[in-house]
Each structure stands twice: as C-alpha cells, then as structure tokens.
Design a protein around this nucleic acid. Structure first.
Length: 571
RNA sequence: CGGGGUGUAGCUCAGCCUGGUAGAGCACUACGUUCGGGACGUAGGGGUCGUAGGUUCAAAUCCUGUCACCCCGACCA
C-alpha cells in the first residue's frame, strides 16, 4: 500500500485540548479527527488499527461459541419504557423523535433490543443456552467526554448477551467470557487486571471489570501484588479490624475547640491522633430524613458502600450545611454521635474504638473519652470506608497497592432483571414457563486502541503492539534526488514483501529523509526498512525495529526470511 | 451539575491592558536550489478575530448576553 493514498496527516504539534499521550499521539499521527465533543472520525490508518482490534475480539468471541448478529443503533422508546430505563437512565441517553413525534433513543447498550428479539424467537430450553454478540457504534451522552477516543460519546463496542434457564450454564458462560477477555488482552499484549466491580446502572449480581494499567486511567484499582485480590476502589472491601474493643478507660469530657473544625485541626489542638477521632457524616436516609455515618478520623467514606445500606438513600446524598442546620442546629465541624437523634451507622474501625474524640453537636465544642454503649447507643456496624494502600488484602494475601486503570471490559451476571420486566420466558424440560437468566458482556473496542497507546509509546510517538499495528513494515526510500530508480527499487521491495504475506506500506511521498523518519516514529509501525543509494549499491537493506536505537544492514535477498524470523521467532 | 479557564488562518500562538489598515512560525500552492533525522529562497492562497447586541467618528481590543470548547470534582466500554 502507498502511504500517500492513506490520507497521511501528521502534525508537529498537537492541539492544545489534547492532554493525555494517547490523545495527543492519535491526533498528531493523523489517526483520528474531532468534529464535536467526544465525536471523532477515524482516518484510514487509524481505522486499520481499529479493525485489527475488532478482528481479535470477534475471533475470541467465536472461539467460545458466541454468534454474531447486528442490532439497530436507533431504538424505540417503548422497549425502554418496558424495562423502566427510559426514566432511570437519565440524560446520558440521547433521545430523539421522528417525524411522527414517536420517541427513540440512540442505543447506549442493547439489553432491551436483545431481550425483545429473544422473547419472540426463543421459547424452548432446547434453544438454550445461547450467546450472541455484535460489534457496533454506541452513543452515550457523557457528562464530560475527554481524552479523545478514550472517553468518547460515540464509540465502538462489542456487546454480548447470553440467555439461560439454569444458573449453572450462566456461570459457565460468564467464566468462558472472562477467559475470552483475558485472551483478547493478552493477544494485544496489554498489562491488565481483572477486578471485582460495582454493577452500576445495568443492575444484576456478579460483575468484573477488565482494566488496562496506565497512568492516564480514570479509575483507581486496588490490588494485592503478591495475591489474587483486585477490585475497583469503589468496591474494594476494607480490611476488618482485629481484636475486641478495649474497655472504657477515660471519663467522658467536654472540651472547647474554638476554630478547630477539621479532623487534623481538632487532632492537633487536643494532641490526639486522628485515628482516635471520629468523623460524623449526615446523609439522606431511605426512610429516616437523615442518617449519621461514623468513620475513624483518618478514614474516607466510600460512597458506593454507603449507598448500598438499606437505611441510606441511593444514590447517596450528603446533606448540605443548610439541611444539617435544620436538624436541630447542627454545624459542620462539630457533629458527633453523642445525643444525636437519628440512626447511627459506624464503620467497623470506628466501632471498635474506645475513649475516642468526636464533635459535641455545638459549634466549637468536642467530647473526648467517648465510649460506645456507655455514652452513645451501640451503633449499627458496616464496612463504610475506602480501602487504603498498605491495608492487608481482604483475602489475607499480601497488602494492597493502588494503580490507575482504563476500563476496557465489563462482564455482568444480570439474572432475570430484564427478562422478567419484558416477559422473556421459555419452557423448561418439564414444560413450565420460566424467565430467562441473562449475562451481558461489554468490551470497548475503540477504547482499547487508546489504552494500547497509553501503555506503549515513547517521546517520539506510538509503538504499536504487533497484533494491532496498522502495518507490519514501513519501507522508506531516501535520496530520490540522486538515484532515479530509488522509488522503483522501493516498489519492488514492497511488492515482494507483500507477496510474502506481510502488510507493507511504502512511504512514496518523496520528502526529505528527516521528515519521513520522524513520521515513521510517530506512526509507530513495528518494522522499518530504509533503502538508500548506498544500500542499493551494496545490495543491502537497512532494518530498524521501532523499539531499537540503531540500524542493522540485512542482505537484500535475505530480507523476507529475516523479517519472518523477527516477527515469529522460533520457540 | 458545581468550580476554574479559553475562543484570532488547518495546527501552535502574538496582538487586547492603553480602540485607529489583522500578524508570526508550521502546514498549503507554484518555481528554483537542496536531499540520511522535521532545509532554504522567491512569489502566492487562506481569517466577517466563536456569536448577537451595546458604547464610540472608529471595536479583535471596552461593556452585556449567548454558544462552543478545555481543565478539576459526582457517572461509564
């Protein structure tokens, strides 16, 4: 293929808006182009990469017996009303009306459509289990699209759905899908972690996320480097405290704390470590107007965990200063559980404290020597806090470390949430009609391309993993001006390698060598061959891997074999 | 949605404070010289200064509204 035919458009400088390496490099290399926030074109070279990622995903889906179909991007509102999500999904759902004022949305996901399809097509256990997938453009009207293709509003996703009448085959498909995702990420050559996850808006039971590790990642993942445990920080269980609560050793005492509102200020003023203070957060209750959450002073509230408590409203609402004041004159900076007239839930670490310090529910006053049971009713106890680096892993193996991750895949066991709402049933082997169990499995195809660049680039440009590189080999002829047949020689080399089965692109732009070399590095094609007047005379070709610092001269007639060995080294 | 910021040529930016003929580098076109790490010369093309209104003899510049975009926090492949 000729580079000049591929709409090459490299930039020396990236637009000011591009912040993270993958976004900058994709724009500079001319792989994508933005039209509006989170909406991009894929230029020919970029599209080759996307198609390669897509092909790997498709192959691994087919390997586990999933079957491809294609569903519509535009979906009728009625189906979303049936599942209840027309109300629930919120402004992220791009809604529209047709000429007859009938409502539609641009699909952000396809549970409704697939369930509608299956309920009309499947009626017997003999047709199950069944796993279907598609690779298709999705639209989610993200609050804040950013980082180019990484968090776009329009993006390419593989979504798969499985249907079952028994939990065993659902669990089996779920496991096979997890393994398929691991194979995809291994084939692309990415460093990743599988983590326990929250189910979010899609709902259901068990759920795992697949994160590619990268500094630009938007999620914090928690994992034990020496053990198996890994989870999204939102979900990571905190280490349970050991031992019993010590018996009270101090008297309850009222102390003035003028101008000390935060835990560090109070701790400093009273010369008490933050670990012996508690903070009290007032949130909206599910039934009660307010619920108090008590955490140790040095711990942070995990909002997801709090929202999951039956007593607490979901999603979590932290009451603001005004609402707190309305509850009997409470002020931020001096709230504590003593004498508080509302349900109190303490984190496990706060619940085993004795002789602790807390706000006295009057501005500028605190209590010290506070003890549960003696001074305050025993609280309900729950895991409320965020995990911290250095905590012992919840499974006891090693200590927790944090890393940044880019979520490229997410698998869910949905159960019967959609099939019950939408009446997707089949007859079991006794002739009884039962709702189908579902699994759903998403993989961000366009996002994994950005993730690959985040993990594999240097200051000069992209370093494509071989599996998704737009081409295997770039041929660069230099010295057009001196040697009349330079381009002809390059074309012969290109044709020969193409016939040998390589994907080859020839830089036929006849630019100055420096420009072509810079672009070669920016584009990141794994193998570069340079032809020059000198090498032609000597019957050699100059080879350099994208990752190498220097050149090797390879005899012209050996070049195909040499490249074969480089790309597929003998075991 | 809350907080901060930016809109001037395809890209990076200057000009704005202190109103007076819209600029530079890169990119683009033509010609010439160059040709192993982002060359040089000459001549060109391209911008109603985001947008609407106001102040003024005169607005890129001052004022008001509005839109778009970017960054930091609550959501997701």
């Amino acid at each position: 293929m000729l580079l000049s035919d591929l709409l090459p458009h490299t930039l020396r400088e990236a637009p000011a808006e591009a912040e993270v390496p993958s976004h900058r490099l994709m724009i500079r290399a001319g792989l994508i182009r933005r039209h509006a926030a989170g909406i991009y074109s894929w230029l020919p070279i970029g599209l080759r990469v996307l198609r390669k990622a897509e092909r790997i995903v498709r192959e691994e889906m087919e390997r586990i017996g999933a079957v491809e179909l294609l569903m519509p991007c535009v979906q009728p509102a009625e189906l979303w009303h049936e599942s209840g999500r027309w109300q629930k999904y919120g402004p992220e759902l791009l809604r529209m009306t047709d000429r007859r004022e009938r409502e539609f949305c641009f699909g952000p996901t396809h549970e409704e459509i697939i369930t509608d399809l299956i309920r009309n097509v499947v009626s017997s256990h003999r047709q199950l289990p069944l796993t279907l997938f598609q690779i298709q453009t999705k639209f989610r009207d993200e609050v804040r699209p950013r980082f180019g293709i990484m968090r776009a509003r329009e993006f390419l996703m593989k979504d798969a759905y499985s249907f079952h009448l028994d939990e065993d085959t659902l669990a089996e498909t779920y496991t096979r899908m997890r393994e398929a995702y691991e194979r995809i990420l291994e084939r692309i050559g990415l460093d990743y972690r599988v983590v326990e996850a929250d189910n979010g808006a899609i709902g259901g039971n068990s759920s795992h996320e697949f994160h590619v590790l990268a500094d630009a990642g938007e999620d914090t993942i928690v994992y034990a480097p020496q053990g198996q445990y890994a989870a999204n920080l939102e979900l990571a269980r905190a280490q349970a405290p050991e031992g019993e609560r010590p018996a009270p050793g101090a008297e309850l005492e009222h102390v003035p704390t003028p101008n000390a509102r935060t835990i560090p200020e109070v701790a400093k003023l009273l010369k008490i470590p933050a670990e012996r203070c508690v903070k009290t957060l007032i949130v909206q209750g599910s039934e009660a107007a307010a619920v108090a959450l008590v955490l140790r002073g040095d711990h942070e509230l995990n909002h997801i965990k709090a929202a999951r408590l039956a007593e607490v409203a979901s999603p979590l609402v932290l009451l603001d200063a005004e609402a707190v004041e309305a509850l009997g004159g409470l002020k931020f900076g001096s709230i504590g559980p003593v004498g508080l007239e509302m349900p109190v839930i303490a984190d496990r670490d706060a619940a085993i404290l004795s002789d602790f310090c807390c706000g006295a529910n009057k501005p500028g006053e605190h209590y010290i020597g506070v003890n549960w049971d003696r001074d305050v009713d025993e609280p309900a106890v729950a895991d409320l806090r965020l995990a911290r680096e250095g905590d012992t892993s919840p499974d006891g193996q090693g200590t927790l470390a944090f890393a940044r991750g880019i979520e490229v895949g997410h698998v869910f066991e949905l159960g019967t949430r959609y099939s019950e709402a939408m009446g997707a049933v089949a007859q079991d082997d006794h002739g009884a009609e039962r709702p189908l169990s579902m699994g759903c499995y998403g993989f961000g195809v366009s996002r994994v391309v950005a993730a690959a660049i985040e993990q594999s680039h240097d200051k000069r440009g992209i370093i494509w993993p071989a599996a998704i590189a737009p081409f295997d080999i770039l041929v660069v002829p230099v010295g057009h001006g001196r040697s009349a047949d330079m381009l002809g020689a390059a074309e012969r080399l290109h044709d020969e390698l193409e016939q040998a089965g390589f994907e080859v692109v020839l830089d036929d732009r006849a630019l100055r060598p420096g420009v072509m070399f810079k672009d070669a590095e920016l584009l990141g094609i794994p193998h570069r061959l340079v032809l020059s007047e000198r090498s032609l005379e000597q019957g050699m070709v100059e080879y350099r891997a994208r990752t190498a610092e220097s050149n090797e001269d390879i005899p012209r007639e050996r070049i195909a074999d040499f490249l074969r060995e480089r790309m597929h080294p003998p075991e």
